[in-house]
Write a protein that binds this DNA or RNA. Sequence first.
DNA 1: CGATTTCTTGATTATTTTCAACGGAGGTGG
DNA 2: CCACCTCCGTTGAAAATAATCAAGAAATCG
Lengths: 241, 241
Amino acid sequence: MTSAFVRGVGRYATLDAADIAVIESQLEPQVRRYDAGHDIIRQGDKPLHPYLILDGWAYCYKTLPNRRRQIVSFLLPGDVSDLNIGSLRRMDHSIASLTAVTVLELTHPLTSGTHPGIAKALSVRTLASAAIQREWMVNLGQRSAPERIGHILCELFHRLRAVGLTSGNQCFLPLTQTDLAETTGLSLVHVNKRLRDLRSADLLILRGKILTLPNLRALEAASLFNPDYLNLVDVADIVAA
Amino acid sequence: MTSAFVRGVGRYATLDAADIAVIESQLEPQVRRYDAGHDIIRQGDKPLHPYLILDGWAYCYKTLPNRRRQIVSFLLPGDVSDLNIGSLRRMDHSIASLTAVTVLELTHPLTSGTHPGIAKALSVRTLASAAIQREWMVNLGQRSAPERIGHILCELFHRLRAVGLTSGNQCFLPLTQTDLAETTGLSLVHVNKRLRDLRSADLLILRGKILTLPNLRALEAASLFNPDYLNLVDVADIVAA
DNA sequence: CGATTTCTTGATTATTTTCAACGGAGGTGG
DNA sequence: CCACCTCCGTTGAAAATAATCAAGAAATCG
């Protein structure tokens, strides 16, 4: 259970033995599980505390009065939701589970200055999320439909690989085309058609919920994808070198 | 000089006399001025420290290899750029001045845990930026062209009003139509035409660099704008109540 | 197995971009 | 002071891109 924390968060700062002991001793009571497809917290609710994803996929979204939705981020194992969220009066967005998820509720002792190593690691992780959000704005504002779709798939693949959740050129991808549409700001029908183009250009295979990227470099090039913004320490790249 | 700090940041947390003394004693050496239209730090550079805007407008942007640009945020007086930015290897975005700006460089003593009141106020401010970024994603992904343009103008007006930079229904707006295009992810030509529509619907007047909103409520409604996400403590609303 | 969700496709319509051109404002140097 | 230049705003027309509408096929789930 600790492993997702260390994999996802410990990577960005040195956690000493005392830090890890704190995490382990405080883990048990604050771990929660949610089934797939449930809201964990809703837009308008009073915020409680940040969450660290231990296992499964979650996502953040905002709803407009006209019922349209925009997915604003994905939370993968090791990811953290907004750290100081407790300071706000109301949630400006909802967080929901995409698959069954296990989360760690980050109650005060873990995020406060009492354990500087942990707090530092968490805040660097938050900074990484901010960089991802900026890149998503570029995606939504400046890239064409096929580029947007390819870009988000490249991003997810890189992020999953960094936490050991890929195998070869494959990963689990629990997204429907509707989810992809709400992520990329495109209509469902358009996502379907551009996905077909990418498939027939042999840039991806999407069957069941398994995504295969037969030629990651080519998809990256076609999507104007550059992984620098992710600030990942990529295990696969280290091993390959 | 302290006033912009207290107006923009002190609003979100209680700063005690000692905090304010620290800020004032450390202000002088770290204040810098930039002329309009200059990069303060560039994508790819090694990050130095966060900035607090004391006066003037700055903005953050990302450039794609194909020369297209996306503006990802505006920094108004009292706003802070990413706090822990020093932890990253390279800037994922550039920061530039739109007008002449005065900034406070937030060197370590101000952001560290040594002055918890200041650190808290700054981190709440960062959280507010994250909420704004999420709303921008909704803007880019889910709103139509006229809604996008109206929405960003409403946002800027509210943010300026919250720091006392509006007078009546007017404010200074140093943006060209090209800037608006790079913010909203639209082409320059299209921004020009939708702006004309908004003008002829009497929802805005834009002459020189003065923006007038004769009917803010109507523009908000037309743009699906709801100010909750800004988490502002709005002086004008308090006075009006 | 039936019911529901998800995926797929074609046709039509709407929105947005691109291309091309011109006018005005403001600054610079002769 | 005027000629010139550049940046900014404006407009019309054509082309490209994406949304909407409608309907049927495939997959998934109790």
